[in-house]
Design a protein around this nucleic acid. Sequence first.
DNA 1: CCATTCATTATACAGTTGCATAATCAAAAG
DNA 2: CTTTTGATTATGCAACTGTATAATGAATGG
Lengths: 230, 230
Amino acid sequence: MTTSSPKRPAARHAGKSVPAAKSLGGPNLREQQKEATRAAILQAALLIFSEHGYNGASTRDIAAQAGVHHALIKYYYQSKDLLWRAAVSFLFERQTRELMLQAPTGPMTRAARREAARAALRRYVLYCARHPEHARLMVQESVRDSARLQWATEHFISRASHAAEAFVRALQKDGLLPPASSPALVYIIVGAAQSFYTLAPEVRRVWNLDPGDETVMNAHIDALLAVFIR
Amino acid sequence: MTTSSPKRPAARHAGKSVPAAKSLGGPNLREQQKEATRAAILQAALLIFSEHGYNGASTRDIAAQAGVHHALIKYYYQSKDLLWRAAVSFLFERQTRELMLQAPTGPMTRAARREAARAALRRYVLYCARHPEHARLMVQESVRDSARLQWATEHFISRASHAAEAFVRALQKDGLLPPASSPALVYIIVGAAQSFYTLAPEVRRVWNLDPGDETVMNAHIDALLAVFIR
DNA sequence: CCATTCATTATACAGTTGCATAATCAAAAG
DNA sequence: CTTTTGATTATGCAACTGTATAATGAATGG
């Protein structure tokens, strides 16, 4: 772990003084630092867990990525397992916050519902592109059964999956998706939307394309919509 | 690693005698055992690597899964890295062997080419269903850049990806796929085909469905073909 | 039958792992 | 300023890691 993090662990104590914003309505200076450290560890955990999987990630690597002493992981999150759960909770709460796919209610023409479906799918792809670590982390856990997968399923995956299925069924009722198995269609659509960004390192090596690039991303979205929303 | 393997390490030496088939045209009894051990290690490596990723898999777990002493991994494969490469080589060689998607040559009606495309896609899904460890292992390596991903790309992934792109372009020429970015379409189709089987443990928990079941699999294939080959 | 070969096992070792506890030291409170 | 609090660091430990080397013992070739 040679990558340096914006916040070095020594910097805080090495600095002559840290007056900072105390009058800024903010509470304790100490409280702010505490939350910053907590957040830095969580972000580092997202990165390392998503790239190496639970067993492949070490708490010392996560601490180094966060620019923090490894003992702070126990201090803030108690154990590697609880840190992982905090990371997963963050991912799904952010997803519902940024997506909150409300079903297109009220009276709409079929054309309007079609456009709403296209917009919803586009928004989902944008989420996958902006936060590839979400799908990366979950895929690594879902390739084998484990207590962690059970926990994630009970707390988040089931709810999200059934919401996605409701979305698929709505499209089917409008003839926008073929009348096939809806769980199968969920995995078809989600897999089609995620893989381009989850496997971005491979895409870069094989095609010399950056899925994060806006032009490339729009081409992917166009292809996806052309295939799915007929 | 508590799962017991069919071949226990002690069994071979504990047995009173192993007459076995010597006259069966087979060479040495010893040579046979050697190849059996070698193969057992490789199969165990496929399973463990695909479920835990390179860093998350331990050579001792692989040896235990194979029912073999862990020192034999060095004896047969020299190092963990070389064992991983042998596993990847096995996967891609099996894929070309079982798939070898020859382009539908010769004069064919468009309807015949459409049926050939559907058959090819069905065969690919069947491969994904029968050998989910292939996609699992590769996904775990492709979510981050590494020397291993570089090696796999240069030796196998590039070739396979460009073959898939040629397949996509052929379908586009027939109007069977929309005229969108062909690399994007490759990842859309591959992701759509793989995820249902790669994430089988999650599918079982969330939907109480077994992607390995023939009925479930046929429903998935039908959905996939309905979406892609119009 | 014996000597040899070599697949397998036993053991060792340095580096890493998650986790725990004590020491430190700056900020907060008085 | 002094004391107290608590965020951070230093250190330790047992288990595990990949890898290396020596010991073992059964099949092989004579």
